[in-house]
Every structure is written in C-alpha cells, then in structure tokens.
Design a protein around this nucleic acid. Structure first.
Lengths: 163, 163
DNA sequence: AGTACATATCTTCCTAGGAAGCAATATCCC
DNA sequence: GGGATATTGCTTCCTAGGAAGATATGTACT
C-alpha cells in the first residue's frame, strides 16, 4: 500500500534525481501524522470542555502525585511552550477553576501551580477516555509494531542534535 | 536508554495503575519528536530567507514539474492549512516575489499559483541543504531502522480513522 | 433554460502563542 | 558580606493561522 508521501517521493525522484529525498519518508510522514493524530485527540478533550493543550498541562500535574503542584517553569518545559505561552495557558486554566496559583514557599520569586479539586476530578475523568482514544488510533498496528515504533522514536529522540 | 517519555509512563503507572498509558509511548513521543524535528529544520530555511512553512509550499509547486503551477485548493490540502491560512501564506510569498497568481483558464472562479523564476531558483537552492539537514537528523538510526520507521508511519497513516 | 446546490478564493474577525523585555529574587564568587 | 550574574514569572506587542461568512462561478437535475 502506498500513501501520499510515496507520491511525493516519486515526484522528487522525477524532478530532482540528483537529490536523495528519502528522509522525507520519515520526517515528512512524522510531521503530517503527528498533526493528524492530534486532530483526532481534540474531540475527546472537547467532550469534557477542555481546549487543546489543557489536558497536557493538567495531566502533568496529576501524574506528579500529591500534592499535585509544580512550578510554571516545569510546566513550560513539559509542554514545549515558551514562558509567555505558559502564563497565558495558566491564566485560562485558573479562570476555569482547574488550577490555582500559590506562592512558592522556597522561592519568593516563584509561584506554585496546584490542581484544584475540580481540576483533579476533571483530569481523572478525561484521562481514561483519552487513552482509550489513543489506543484506538493505534489499532492499525500490532502490539509488536507499536513497541517497535515506540523504540525507534525513543532512539531518534535520544539522538537528536541540540538545537 | 530511557527518555523523558519513559519517566512519564512510570509516573502514570504509579498514580493511575488502573489505566494503560502505553499509547503515550507512541503518540506522545511522536508529537514531541515532530515538533523537535521541525524546530531543527527552521535554521536551514532561515539561512535562505524562508519563513517556516514557505519551503513546504514552494517545494510542492517545484516537484510538480513544469509549468510549476497548482490551484490554491491543492496547496491547502498539501500544506494541511485552511483556505484562509493558505491565502495569507500566498500573500506573503507573492509579496516576496516567489510566486505569482494568475487566472485559471479552466475555471473563472479560480487562480493558479505559479513559481516565479526567483521562487524556482530559491527552492532549488534550498532543497539540497534542507534534505541534507533532514538526513543529519536521522543519523541516530541505521538505514534499516529508517526504512522500518517509514513503513510503520505509513501503515499508521493509512489506517487512521476519518476525522 | 433555469433552479438548486457545490466549490474556489478571499475577507473579516479573533485567538493562541512567540519574542523581547522587566522587576524581583536568588546564587555565585571573591 | 557584597557586587556581578542568573533565574523566575509576568507583561507588552506582534503575527500566523483558524472559523465563519461573502461572492462569484461551476455543475447537476429537471
């Protein structure tokens, strides 16, 4: 079976036979696939009233375990946002009553972000359906193929050159 | 070797042992990796004065072969943008003299987007270095692993449920 | 031919997030 | 201890792109 990236590779082979376009078979597919997958995660978020990106942040707090607190800096790193992006996303989540800001007792510059009870309940409600949805998206692959894919992605990730 | 997603999976196993979080090992890694890879493509674009996303559009025109023309609708699909996003991106590329809009002789509603000579030269200059950069990013994987990864991504892509 | 519906592109309006910069506090190093 | 430097979180400003809608044209069906 061929996909649209195979067509792209054929076009390059015809138009620029001097170039080796095969990296597109990996990187091009991954860019497109990542976006296509994310688009298929959003409906489950939306069913629970979550904007895209909110679950990622709430889940990061949730999986720390009690007391479900992190500094904004930590959330910035885990969410791959900039600090200004994190501030804005936290503003929304705070306005929705899902997180609360409190002063960091160990650093008077800092703030701690805490899951509220409401946020905790919400993330606990949505994470099950969310993971079931992700599992559904992976159904085209066998269990062995999923593990193989995860392993290749890990290897590539660990070998990434610094930016 | 473990990566940061392995830590995330451990956290979920501890906090929510009732859930199967393993899909994150594929989908979470892919989302993060796709963004990390894209960030590492941008410096090469920037060296040639291209904004992110411009190369994708110019390359789509280039690999069609002569006369290097497509309708905006086609570009919308290939770039995974909406039509309004495409219009704006085309505005920028037109202002930069890299593409030209001309009336579609076969459809009076339509427009054809054509690579200008300048656009053609630019995309021909940048695609080589761009592909070399992509190849560099894939160096952590052996040739066999790259093919395996491309195959798994293709399979997953082809099996994706409709949105 | 004419009516209904579909499609192509662009426009308007809006928002998420980035870049740069700021004030407060912390850390380092002599 | 005290001055230089780093870090924290936020603010301001800006832009890329989405959603919804408008307009013009094409297509299908009677």
């Amino acid at each position: 079976m061929r996909d649209s990236v195979d067509d792209i590779l054929d076009q390059w082979a015809r138009e620029r036979p001097d170039l080796d376009a095969t990296p597109i078979g990996v990187i091009g597919r991954m860019s497109r696939l990542a976006r296509a997958l994310e688009a298929r995660l959003e409906p489950v978020y939306a069913e629970h009233g979550l904007e895209p990106g909110w679950h990622d942040l709430l889940a990061t707090l949730r999986r720390q375990g009690p007391p479900f607190k992190l500094r904004p800096t930590d959330l910035t790193h885990s969410s791959m946002l900039t600090s200004s992006g994190t501030t804005k996303r936290l503003d929304k989540l705070e306005a929705a009553g899902l997180i609360a800001r409190e002063p960091d007792p160990n650093d008077r510059r800092g703030t701690l972000i805490a899951l509220t009870d409401k946020g905790r309940k919400l993330v606990d409600d949505v994470t099950g359906p969310h993971l079931a949805n992700e599992a559904r998206l992976l159904e085209p692959l066998s269990q062995a193929e999923r593990e193989q894919l995860a392993g290749l992605l890990r290897k590539l990730n660990l070998g990434l050159p610094p930016l």
